[in-house]
Design a protein around this nucleic acid. Structure first.
Length: 280
DNA sequence: ACGGATGTTCGCGC
DNA sequence: CGCGCGAACATCCG
């Protein structure tokens, strides 16, 4: 489930599993995840390299190895990193394995929307897709003022703007849906028409949604807290179309924005009205 | 079985 | 040029 919280979690896992360790062997079957790069080049360059640091930028992972070797990794829609004992069979859909001592760290991605790419470590932060990323609501304070500046004068839907990594980092369909419901803002509102006080509520809502999701992830990774009800939807609005809003009991509705389904409460999140624009 | 899914990128048209 | 839209990518799950 890769949005900011999941990718942050993945970064923490990779740090715990591999930072300070040397990759004795890398395995990379040819797959779309490599985006045309030669598997042999990837595995040869990673072999013998020691992982020094892992950073997250929006939904990207930056792996800094010694000898100026860097790996850019994105989880796409279904990617995840898993730890296994070395020698144990790799999970299905493993696209890259980094073996170190007794452990093996596998990148698993059934749909292959994710990617891994070698670069010089010194170049990772300057890659075009990394350089354009906006402020990160987990690493820095993103309040109403900054949010308003980043959204600018665009008339596109506030939800589409929120999901644009150049505006703000790490917000995907789940977080955007959750935060807009918390802030009581209709997802189709023109971004430029969202008021300063609404932006303040939205900034708080983004932080709260991230915190909740990260708490859920931390609990999940602790076996003692495994839910007996894993089928439950842990979200407040996402995936709840037809169910009653927990604030006002009105059934959630949905619409498509930027090609993504967008659940909203028609009562808590009133629709934008053309009449209001004409009156101005 | 059919429809939809947490992301990104591309091409097209206005 | 900015922006919206739809498609594409490939597989799984309910």
């Amino acid at each position: 489930m890769p949005e900011l919280p999941e990718v942050e979690h993945a970064a923490g896992c990779l740090r715990a599993w591999l930072v300070g360790r040397t990759v004795d062997r890398a395995v990379a079957p040819a797959s779309r995840v490599l985006r045309g790069a030669a598997p042999a080049t990837l595995t040869r360059k990673l072999r013998g390299r020691r992982l020094r640091a892992v950073e997250r930028r929006s939904k990207y992972l930056l792996l800094f190895f010694d000898a100026d070797v860097g790996l850019l990794a994105h989880l796409g829609m279904t990617g995840k990193w898993v730890l296994r004992a070395r020698g144990e069979a790799a999970p299905q859909h493993t696209r890259l394995s980094l073996e170190s001592g007794a452990r093996a760290v596998h990148y698993v991605d059934p749909r292959m929307f994710g990617r891994v790419a070698l670069h010089r470590a010194a170049d990772l932060e300057a890659l075009p897709e990394i350089r354009v990323i906006g402020p990160d609501p987990h690493r820095e304070r993103v309040g109403a003022k900054l949010l308003g500046e980043r959204i600018g004068k665009t008339k596109r839907a506030i939800k589409v703007a929120l999901m644009d990594p150049r505006v703000i980092a790490g917000i995907g369909n789940i977080l955007a849906t959750e935060a807009l419901w918390r802030a009581r803002i209709h997802p189709a509102r023109p971004a430029s028409a969202v008021t300063a006080s609404e932006l303040a509520a939205l900034a708080r809502a983004i932080r709260a949604s991230i915190r909740l999701q990260m708490g859920t992830l931390a609990a999940e990774s602790d076996a003692t807290y495994l839910s007996e009800d894993a089928s439950d939807n842990p979200f407040l609005a996402y995936g709840r179309v037809g169910e009653p809003c927990s604030r006002c009991q009105t059934p959630f509705e949905t619409m498509i924005l930027g090609g993504r389904s967008s659940a909203f409460c028609p009562r808590c999140q009133p629709a934008p009205r053309r009449a209001a624009q004409r009156l101005r």
